[in-house]
């Protein structure tokens, strides 16, 4: 469980985070979505106690991160895959983590294997790692001490498609065991495929949050009938919004069942009745952030 309660972080006049509140719940993958510079990383750093919040409160497992005893055994973090000593081997990085958190050093081998690094790669110095290898090492480090919360900043960066798929399965599996996962990404399709809940941030403010299903729910019902004008009038008198579609038919702000009943009462023959097109997270993402994104209205 991760909770942010009205967290604000200011750098001078600039508010990197402005009254951010959301929750990442156990047993679920929470996707944290936003354009570059929206505040995703800052919010995660506030949770991990690396950046002090100007006001508001962030807790992990019900307490401020700084008060967690042996935090590595509770929370696995991957905030920046490049933040490792270039002169240490991958294995040494994990060994230091194992000693510090007090877990069996055999877990180092287990994790090296699990994230798909070869024996040879693990014994190489981190300066010779590709970004994908660094991400894998970072994920191994996050999972090393068997945490119940995972906080991952752009973990899919630099991974190949097979790696991204592996990560998706891994995070889902982790959540299925009851763990809490908060991951940020700008890869919209990736979030859409892995997250149970989505939090969208733009310009330091939360602009949308909810379950993935809610946020992706189709927009109303598409209907075509033998008498669109008559059906439309019946729906409007029932207090339902109706928008004609240029290519024929109407888009109705109600569930298909409501439209079907209205058609029955108005004795209109339905030619087509279906839920509106799923707009997709990408479109919603651009909608929500178009006024704050650097590129303006992209796509």
């Amino acid at each position: 469980m991760i909770t942010l309660d009205n967290v604000t972080k200011r750098y001078g006049a600039f508010a990197a985070l402005d009254g951010v509140s959301f929750e990442a719940r156990p047993g679920r993958v929470t996707g944290f979505l936003g354009p570059n510079g929206a505040g995703k990383t800052t919010a995660m750093r506030v949770v991990a106690g690396l950046t002090p919040a100007t006001s508001g409160r962030a807790t992990v497992l019900g307490r401020p991160y700084a008060t967690l005893p042996n935090p590595g055994r509770h929370v696995g973090l991957l905030l920046d895959a490049s933040a490792q000593h270039a002169g240490r081997t991958g294995r040494e990085v994990l060994t230091l983590g194992a000693i510090l958190t007090g877990v069996d050093r055999r877990r180092v081998d287990e994790l090296v294997d699990l994230v798909g690094l070869t024996e040879k790669e693990a014994n190489r110095r981190v300066r010779n790692y590709s970004l994908g290898m660094r991400q894998r090492l970072g994920i191994a480090h996050a999972l090393l001490a068997d945490p119940e919360v995972l906080i991952l900043d752009e973990p899919a960066n630099g991974l190949d498609p097979a790696g991204i798929r592996w990560m998706r399965d891994l995070l889902k599996g982790f959540a299925a065991q009851g763990g809490t996962v908060l991951l940020s990404s700008h890869l919209l399709n990736e979030i859409e495929r892995v997250a149970d809940d989505i939090v969208v941030i733009g310009h330091g403010r939360i602009v949308a949050q909810g379950t993935t299903d809610e946020l992706l729910m189709g927009s109303g019902t598409v209907v075509r009938s033998s008498d669109d004008a008559g059906l439309g009038a019946a729906l409007v008198s029932a207090g339902v919004g109706v928008n004609p579609i240029a290519s024929g038919g109407m888009l109705v702000d109600a569930a298909p069942e409501v439209v079907g009943r209205a058609a029955l009462q108005a004795a209109v023959v339905l030619l087509e009745l279906r839920t509106g097109d799923q707009r997709g997270l990408e479109e919603m993402f651009f909608d929500l952030t178009s006024d704050t994104a650097r590129e303006g209205v992209a796509a």
Binding site: N70, T101, E110, A145, K172, T212
Partner: peptide, 25 residues
């Protein structure tokens, strides 16, 4: 896409038995 498969496709690390530590390092 969004349902947890009963058996995850990626192996998870073994869980460490026993309670999580309550004492600091």
């Amino acid at each position: 896409a969004r349902a947890h498969p009963p058996t995850a496709g990626a192996t998870l690390p073994a869980q460490i038995p026993g309670n999580r530590p309550t004492a600091g390092l």
